[in-house]
């Protein structure tokens, strides 16, 4: 099982890397085509060029297939590993990073199906790939659970819910980046700002309830294990900060002067906070250090 999990993981990494390659080439090709047609005066100016590379081979579609393939491999890897370890992917950063990448891919796939904007993948796939490459730097060894982590059901749900939240935040981040890159005029062959804004919002609408639930479940665990639902442990606090930033984003969307660009910046800030919370284990101590790399 352990070996199977490793092989699936590697296959997953390769699929995602190839998918990203397809997207990049398809996007560049589409832009070149777009410029040519624009020069030829064919009048597609200002329109949306989705990454669908209509130049012969439909690379974009292959990219998406590869995303599904990668998702399948990573799902298999996580399942094999769960069987091998007997618990969900919460015991160390190796497991959790794969799960994070899985969440990002799954949410990207979901939003791609809905909105047909492969260009989101240009940002979301690198995020997933970075997580996977990071996982590769961590030994995959299976260590038995220290007592604090022996709460399999609760922690598995806690992580599963967190993964959905993080995945949607990656998508919101991707859309926000594109929103800002595109600028006011919308002339860079990207989806319209309106659409990007909508994608971000819809992603946060899914992610925010899940993040809320993640924090609540974390509080339940803290109560059972440490005798208090909240202790301002740095990891808890960081997740609260993340929650507040996304909360402010939801409100910002109905405040004059905060819609649009500022809201997009809040999404970048929110994603930075997400990563800060995620990697927090590495540089701040606290209760969660039990779940980190050092078996305190």
């Amino acid at each position: 099982m352990f070996k199977m999990s490793e092989y699936s993981f590697i296959a997953g990494v390769l699929s995602v890397a190839l998918a990203l390659g397809c997207y990049v080439i398809a996007f560049v090709a589409a832009r070149v085509m777009h410029q040519r047609t624009a020069l030829a005066g064919a009048g597609a100016g200002g329109g949306t060029v989705a990454v669908d590379g209509r130049g012969g081979v439909n690379l974009g579609a292959y990219g998406t297939l590869l995303v599904y393939l990668g998702l399948t491999f990573l799902t298999a890897s996580l399942i094999f590993r769960t069987v091998a370890t007997g618990h969900g992917p919460f015991a160390n950063m190796y497991e959790f990073s794969i799960a994070f990448a899985w969440g990002t891919l799954a949410m990207y796939a979901y939003f791609e199906r809905r909105y047909h904007q492969r260009v989101l993948g240009l940002i979301a796939l690198p995020v997933a790939l970075a997580m996977l490459l990071y996982a590769m730097t961590i030994p995959a060894t299976i260590d038995p659970l220290v007592p604090a982590l022996q709460n399999n059901l609760l922690l598995s749900v806690h992580v599963a819910v967190a993964i959905v939240a993080y995945g949607t935040f990656s998508v919101a981040f991707a859309a926000a980046i594109l929103y800002l890159v595109q600028g006011e005029n919308g002339r860079r062959g990207l989806p319209s700002r309106e659409l990007l804004d909508e994608i971000s919002y819809k992603a946060v609408v899914v992610g925010f309830p899940f993040l809320t639930l993640t924090i609540v479940l974390g509080a339940v665990w803290a109560e059972v294990a440490w005798g208090t639902y909240w202790s301002w442990d740095p990891k808890e606090t960081a997740s609260l900060v993340t929650w507040l930033i996304y909360g402010s984003y939801l409100h910002a969307r109905v405040v004059r002067g905060w819609r649009g660009e500022r809201a997009a910046w809040l999404l970048l800030l929110g994603f930075a906070a997400t990563l800060f919370t995620y990697f927090g284990n590495l540089f701040f101590g606290g209760l969660h250090s039990y779940s980190g790399l050092n078996n305190q």
Binding site: T237, A238, L240, I245, S248
Partner: peptide, 12 residues
């Protein structure tokens, strides 16, 4: 809300 987030950040 943002002010609270800033305090939280300082706290971490």
């Amino acid at each position: 809300i943002l002010a609270l987030a800033v305090l939280g950040l300082i706290g971490t």
